[in-house]
Computed example of a mutant assay.
Amino acid sequence: MVDPLSSRRIAHMALFALIAAGTMFLRLLPISPVTHGVPGPDLMLAFAVAWLLRRPDYVPTVLIIAVFVLEDLIYWRPIGLWPLIVLGGTEFLRSRVRPNRSLSFPAELAIVAGVMLVMLLVNRLVLALFMVDQPVLGLELLRYLMTLVAYPFVVALSALAFGLRRPAPGDDIAFGRRL
């Protein structure tokens, strides 16, 4: 007999992988009639951060790395740089999950905005250091802002559609370990 907590954890990991595949597929579709416009948000980053801050056990490090390496391969980015930066940002947030459990949503959004901005700047710095062509800074900042605008909707979708909420302080005992 399978433990219900383990099966729920595995089901959410599979759901995260399906969301990743769906967003990558939608991003590859040629549905944008305008070539110069507002760039779309980085939905995978928003989902990864939202799920990580709500239930870090549903988004293990290996899954995050696998999703973002696959994105690098599909979108022809330098392989490994963005996953390494995302790993650093998500592990920083993972270490802060327990103290930030009682934070209000605006405070959480401010922390996420700061971490995402540092991730963007580190990515641009490393690419500039190795003289790799980069998108225009204005477009990258606009994508960053669009990701921040999409973040509350990602959190709401995760809570309403997938039942992803922060564990209550008493849930630690039910899971048998500290979350």
Rank of each mutant, 00 (worst) to 15 (best):
A110D: 03
L145C: 11
D133S: 14
A128L: 09
L117K: 01
L109H: 05
R143P: 04
L103R: 15
T90K: 00
F130I: 15
F130Y: 14
P135G: 13
Y151S: 07
M146W: 00
F130R: 01
S95Q: 14
L141C: 03
V132E: 13
F153L: 12
A128I: 02
E140M: 15
V136D: 15
R94L: 03
F153Y: 12
L87T: 04
R143T: 14
L129G: 14
G138Q: 06
R98C: 02
V97E: 10
N100S: 15
L120D: 06
L117C: 04
N123D: 11
L120Y: 03
L137N: 02
V149C: 06
F105V: 13
R143L: 05
V132C: 04
G89Q: 00
N100M: 15
A110T: 11
V132N: 08
A128V: 03
E108W: 03
E140F: 04
R98K: 14
V122D: 02
P99R: 06
N100D: 15
S104G: 12
M116N: 10
L103P: 01
L148S: 02
G89Y: 03
S95M: 11
E108N: 07
R94H: 10
L103S: 07
V97R: 08
L93T: 01
P152D: 07
V149I: 14
V118H: 05
M116R: 08
L109P: 05
R98F: 10
P106K: 02
V122I: 13
L137Q: 07
L137Y: 10
E140T: 06
L137C: 06
L121H: 00
M146R: 10
Y144H: 03
L109A: 08
F105L: 15
L93W: 03
M146Y: 00
T147I: 01
L129M: 09
R101E: 06
L125W: 08
E91S: 06
R101Q: 13
L125N: 05
M119Q: 10
A107Y: 05
F153P: 01
R98Y: 08
L120C: 07
T147P: 00
L129K: 06
V122C: 08
Q134R: 15
L137W: 13
G114Q: 07
L93Q: 02
L103F: 14
D133K: 12
R94K: 04
M116H: 04
V126E: 01
G88V: 01
R94S: 02
V118T: 12
Y151D: 10
V126F: 05
V149P: 02
L142E: 09
L145F: 13
V122Q: 02
F92W: 12
N123F: 13
M116L: 12
V112S: 04
L121W: 06
S104Y: 05
T90G: 01
L109D: 01
R101L: 09
L137F: 14
V149F: 08
R124L: 14
P152S: 06
A107S: 13
R98N: 05
L103C: 08
V149N: 02
L137I: 10
R94N: 08
M131F: 11
Y151A: 11
F105E: 08
A128Q: 10
L109N: 06
R143D: 07
L129V: 08
R98W: 11
P106A: 01
M131P: 04
L141W: 09
L137P: 00
A128M: 12
V118L: 15
Q134H: 08
P99A: 02
V112I: 11
L87C: 06
P99V: 00
G89S: 04
A150G: 01
R94V: 06
P152H: 00
P152T: 06
P135W: 12
F130V: 13
